[in-house]
Nucleic acid binder design. Structure first.
Lengths: 217, 217
DNA sequence: TCGAACATGGGTGTCAGCACCTATGGACGC
DNA sequence: GCGTCCATAGGTGCTGACACCCATGTTCGA
């Protein structure tokens, strides 16, 4: 028997983190050796601690789990990453895969499924949450075959900044005043965001920002 | 030593539920005897099971924790209710108190705090999450002294219907077509909603609807 | 060094959101 | 019966959102 897999657990809710830790530590082949409150801390922990698997929540302050996943898979390509989230959402799923995650698990699954997902991730097998494999994987493969696996252009830092302010309810003029640019430029960025994300208006931008944890409802 | 307090735990995420259950069952004076996936099931469980304390998440499908709390405190006024949520939000806090909850705890607290909150709720002492007592309680008492503890007019069924559709991103005309009324009437209801809830525009209505669990992000 | 990507900003036009105003008809309680 | 609340609906007017058009300066990698 080999040593248990060393896990980093990142979730901004201490209660959830502690509960999941109890579940995982109960397994002989899994052990949680680090915890993180947010994405930035998760990256820092992964740099300083020897871990095999990172379990990342999506909605976290400072840096979302998806952002952390992108950074971690760039810094340490051999690290296994599991996204653990409450959002049963196709767009997230694709973003998670693009960010280098090998698994996507909902918080609504049973604990046995989480443990199975951890083991699959460690063996480098993809694991998608139960009930979604068929449609989601099929769509993903369809896109991949068309050479179109990563269709979405990444949004820039400035755009993310604008996105956050738009989603918080500020008008173009207000945002312009905050960032010391013209309202026109704000609208330019907003239009680019709508186009890149395939959304219709500020309202959908808001829901998107809430989904990815950029702002609180 | 008396028998442990019997607890109902309602959260739509099985993982979270299981983790919290492990935390609570570890305490000799607390025992989780029932679980629920959503607000409606929580009410059903509370009817059929003998419990002392209900721990309710806010964001749950079918019926939010706040709605369930209102119903439970009407059905069984002697039942202790604890709201456990990820939302550090003043409006929620007041709504929780109005709904009959004696405690409001964030998921970001440590497990010791959750256990303490359970014990406080069972002893019928109010428990507010650490760090917020001063401002929140003060505001609440200020309002109560002005005889203004429940300032908000309740929104009607029709308004809630409109709210949901607005928050989902439909235009007035679309909503009118869906409900077979004129766009003008939709705007009338929307204006009433804005006024009753003290909000500024559709975007804030959307965030409100997400907060109270009326729609998903 | 040349092009691509990015941030900047201007113009024009349409339309939906929202704030005011008005009114009517039904239900319900006092 | 009379007032109150609710749902219905119309008018007017302003303004922000959004879709198109356009150009300029910087930076950075091929």
């Amino acid at each position: 028997m080999t040593a248990p897999a060393r896990i980093l657990l990142a979730d901004d809710h201490a209660l959830v983190r502690h509960g999941v830790r109890l579940i995982l530590d109960n397994e002989p082949d899994l052990t949680v050796v680090a915890e993180a409150d947010d994405g930035a801390e998760a990256v820092a922990q992964a740099r300083s601690t020897d871990i095999d698997l990172a379990i990342l929540d999506i909605a976290m302050p400072r840096q979302t789990g998806l952002q952390a996943a992108r950074e971690l898979s760039r810094l340490r390509p051999e690290l296994h990453i599991l996204i653990l989230t409450m959002y049963d959402n196709e767009q997230y799923f694709f973003e998670a895969l693009k960010a280098g995650a090998s698994g996507y698990v909902l918080k609504s699954v049973a604990d046995r499924d989480l443990v199975a997902a951890c083991r699959a991730a460690i063996r480098d097998e993809p694991f998608i949450y139960p009930g979604a494999e068929t449609t989601l994987i099929r769509k993903y493969l369809d896109r991949a075959q068309q050479g179109d696996a990563l269709p979405a252009k990444p949004i820039t830092e400035r755009e993310e900044e604008i996105l956050k302010l738009v989603a918080e309810g500020h008008t173009s003029k207000e945002i312009g005043d905050i960032l010391f640019i013209s309202a026109k430029t704000v609208e330019r960025h907003r239009a680019n965001l709508l186009q890149k994300l395939g959304l219709r208006d500020r309202l959908e931008l808001t829901r998107y920002a809430i989904r990815v944890g950029l702002i609180e409802p």
